[in-house]
Deep mutational scan, measured.
Amino acid sequence: MVYKIRDKETGKVYEVTIDEETNEITVYDVKTGKPVKTVNMTIEELKEAGYEVEPV
């Protein structure tokens, strides 16, 4: 599923895909559409880390 996340401190917005089964999150560069990095976190962990998470 695709989400937009926003860093509450910097205001930067990222587009991510989240595999609900493995909790693998792939972060994409919004301008190029290319993957930047992959992390292993849940949506709740993202929120605790200071991100706003919205489904696209």
Rank of each mutant, 00 (worst) to 15 (best):
M1R: 14
M1Q: 13
M1V: 13
M1C: 13
M1T: 12
V2L: 12
V2T: 11
Y3E: 02
Y3D: 02
Y3F: 11
K4V: 14
K4D: 01
K4A: 05
K4F: 14
I5N: 00
I5V: 11
R6A: 04
R6G: 01
R6C: 09
R6N: 03
R6K: 11
D7L: 03
D7V: 03
K8Q: 06
K8G: 04
E9D: 09
E9P: 01
E9Y: 12
E9I: 14
E9F: 13
E9M: 13
E9Q: 12
T10H: 02
T10M: 01
T10G: 03
T10D: 03
T10C: 07
T10Y: 01
G11T: 00
G11W: 02
K12M: 14
K12W: 08
K12A: 13
K12V: 12
K12E: 14
Y14K: 00
Y14S: 01
Y14R: 00
E15T: 15
E15N: 14
E15F: 15
V16S: 01
V16K: 00
V16I: 15
V16E: 00
V16C: 13
T17P: 00
T17L: 11
T17I: 11
I18N: 01
I18L: 07
I18H: 09
I18T: 04
I18Y: 15
D19K: 07
E20Y: 12
E20W: 14
E20V: 12
E20T: 14
E20K: 12
E20A: 13
E20H: 11
E20M: 12
E21S: 13
E21M: 11
E21N: 13
E21G: 09
T22S: 12
T22P: 01
T22E: 05
T22I: 07
T22N: 12
T22K: 15
T22H: 12
T22G: 06
T22D: 03
T22V: 06
T22R: 14
T22L: 11
N23K: 11
N23S: 07
N23F: 07
N23M: 08
N23I: 05
E24H: 11
E24F: 12
E24A: 10
E24M: 15
E24L: 15
I25F: 03
I25Y: 02
I25N: 00
T26M: 06
T26H: 08
T26D: 01
T26I: 10
V27T: 02
V27G: 04
V27C: 15
V27N: 01
V27M: 15
Y28S: 05
Y28E: 01
D29S: 05
D29Q: 02
D29G: 01
D29T: 01
V30P: 15
V30Q: 11
V30H: 13
V30D: 14
V30F: 10
K31C: 15
K31I: 15
K31Y: 14
K31N: 14
T32E: 06
T32A: 04
T32K: 01
G33N: 07
G33T: 02
G33Q: 06
G33R: 07
G33P: 00
G33A: 05
K34E: 10
K34G: 04
K34M: 13
P35M: 11
P35W: 12
P35R: 11
P35F: 12
P35C: 10
V36D: 03
K37R: 12
K37I: 13
K37W: 15
T38A: 05
T38F: 09
T38H: 08
V39S: 04
V39C: 15
V39I: 15
N40E: 08
N40W: 13
N40H: 14
N40Y: 15
N40C: 13
N40I: 14
N40A: 12
M41H: 04
M41S: 06
M41A: 08
M41C: 11
T42W: 00
T42G: 06
I43Q: 02
I43W: 08
I43C: 10
I43R: 04
I43M: 09
I43E: 02
I43A: 03
E44H: 10
E45N: 07
L46I: 10
L46V: 08
L46P: 00
L46E: 00
L46Y: 04
L46S: 00
L46N: 00
K47T: 09
K47S: 09
K47R: 12
E48T: 10
E48A: 13
E48S: 12
E48K: 12
E48P: 01
A49M: 14
A49W: 11
A49Q: 10
A49R: 10
G50L: 04
G50K: 04
G50H: 03
G50R: 05
G50F: 05
Y51R: 01
Y51E: 01
Y51D: 01
Y51W: 14
Y51G: 01
E52C: 04
E52M: 06
E52R: 03
V53A: 04
E54D: 07
E54V: 10
P55I: 11
V56I: 12
